[in-house]
């Protein structure tokens, strides 16, 4: 049961991470194609606020506050009762609302599969591809050192 619960939480968190990284218009476009329902009652927000970003002294030491970032969040309830939350950097309220509905739908066994395949999977694929492009572009700037032999013997 504990393993099951942990897997459940990891899946839900992975969806939230994907939605937080994804662009608002991409989420909206996929949503329209997916046929997922978008009726939900707003319980909170969407509202924009700040989080204070923390770092660590020396990279791994004691925490310190670096500065703030804008975050927008929303909480919704589906007609079927599930409550969904969303948090993401930025100020996009439409994205916050859709992401909260996605979180709520994901908790409904009748919709989880559709949320995963029609929304999360294509978003994840696009994000992974973009990340991979960045990685190989960065890798092309890696220095290959070689030794020059000067003079004879």
């Amino acid at each position: 049961m504990r393993g099951q619960e942990a897997r459940e939480q990891a899946g839900r968190k992975a969806l939230m991470a994907t939605l937080a990284h994804a662009a608002a218009d991409e989420i909206a476009r996929l949503w329209n194609e997916s046929g997922l329902p978008s009726e939900a009652e707003l319980l909170r927000g969407p509202e924009t606020g700040l989080v204070t970003v923390r770092g660590r002294i020396g990279g791994g030491g004691a925490p310190f506050n670096v500065g703030e970032a804008t975050v927008t969040r929303a909480t919704v309830r589906l007609p079927s009762g599930q409550v969904g939350h969303s948090y993401a950097l930025g100020r996009d309220k439409g994205k916050a609302r859709l992401a909260a509905i996605a979180d709520a739908l994901w908790q409904d066994p009748a919709h989880r599969e559709a949320v995963e395949t029609k929304l999360a999977a294509p978003l994840r694929a696009a994000l992974d591809a973009a990340r991979e492009t960045r990685r190989v572009e960065t890798a092309a700037t890696k220095v290959d050192f070689f030794t020059m032999v000067r003079g004879e013997d």
Partner: peptide
């Protein structure tokens, strides 16, 4: 900044796990 509410403090970032540029 002063016009916005504060939701909290993030967990400290892990710069060792950075997606490097």
């Amino acid at each position: 900044r002063t016009t916005l509410p504060r939701f909290g403090y993030t967990n400290p970032v892990d710069t060792g796990a950075m997606q490097l540029e």
